[in-house]
Design a protein around this nucleic acid. Sequence first.
DNA 1: GTTACCATGTAAAGAGTTACATGATTTG
DNA 2: CAAATCATGTAACTCTTTACATGGTAAC
Lengths: 189, 189
Amino acid sequence: MALRHAVLAALLDGELSGYQLAKAFDVGVANFWYAQPQQLYAELTRLQQQGLVAGREVVQESRPNKRLFHVTDAGLAELEDFTAASARPVFVRDDLMVKVQAADSVDTATLIDQLTERAEIARARIELFEALLRRLRGDRSEEDFLRHGDRIGPYLTCLRGIAFEQENRDWCLRTVAVLEERRHTRARN
Amino acid sequence: MALRHAVLAALLDGELSGYQLAKAFDVGVANFWYAQPQQLYAELTRLQQQGLVAGREVVQESRPNKRLFHVTDAGLAELEDFTAASARPVFVRDDLMVKVQAADSVDTATLIDQLTERAEIARARIELFEALLRRLRGDRSEEDFLRHGDRIGPYLTCLRGIAFEQENRDWCLRTVAVLEERRHTRARN
DNA sequence: GTTACCATGTAAAGAGTTACATGATTTG
DNA sequence: CAAATCATGTAACTCTTTACATGGTAAC
């Protein structure tokens, strides 16, 4: 059960409604996990039943009412246990990689398009993440912030998000370059 | 359905038994996907029923008999379709990131251990992947191989595997450094 | 007026993990 | 004699995705 803990970790930053949480997870600005709104609403309900989060109804006039959730002491204890338990390494698991693996046997035209598009998406995310980093550290330098800041978890995970997307972008562009050169070479022969 | 295509792509390199396939997926040497043996046996059966792969029984004396599978023309066509369809971007989704996100609120001792261990695993995988790259390109230079080699798909995915693991390792080590320094700083105050 | 945003869900299907099962051979 | 390798699966469970569903307000 990983989503549970991702939700708990996300709620450490303060009270959030399901909708706000969904936005954070959706943009990937949460950058350490991704989940869809439906999952989050369901998970919040479960977590509340188990007493790991508590919600309070906020009545709004010009908008639908919402429930704001925060982590309870039991939730914190659960996170503590989770952190102490060991985690297995992860793999990339990307459809694009499967396609590239098969690149020698299939038409590469659309593949090149997809890689280019993916590089662009990665670029956009890097920008987004970098803006988030700046916001998190305020006017401090990164080094200073990481040494003395109160809440560095999100900053550290965001650093990884950026590194991942950079690697992503660079690999896509490199692969496009290789595939395109081969197309031209073949065309000439 | 993603595993289907990963299996098809993996079988492009030649006939494999379920067991051999499982080893490739397990080590992650397939490096573009990961799956467990049970999944693979089930998937091979399904693929065979759908005519996307064909198997032949190989009778062995000192070992149990095995079934060697290869991709059929229908399988190739399926891969072609899959490649043409668009793929959604991926996220990292790593328990370790969830833990780091919560690092300000939980005990970091075991977390530091886990990050260190993960860095070591990443280092080992990088070595493994680099050996695989050397084997794939033979005595050619990377540039030459990527320009004129017959089968570059696995090479390109392996490049990404390495980049991913490097990023992984570096982030873990950086995070450990940050967390450790904060422990010491706090201890002093 | 149409699109985007706020706000919350249910239901079903698909994918992946974990646990359980078996049994022979080879290597140390 | 124990551990690793070869070889193949089933069953139950959890997690994720996709599709469906509703309804008001704000902005262009």
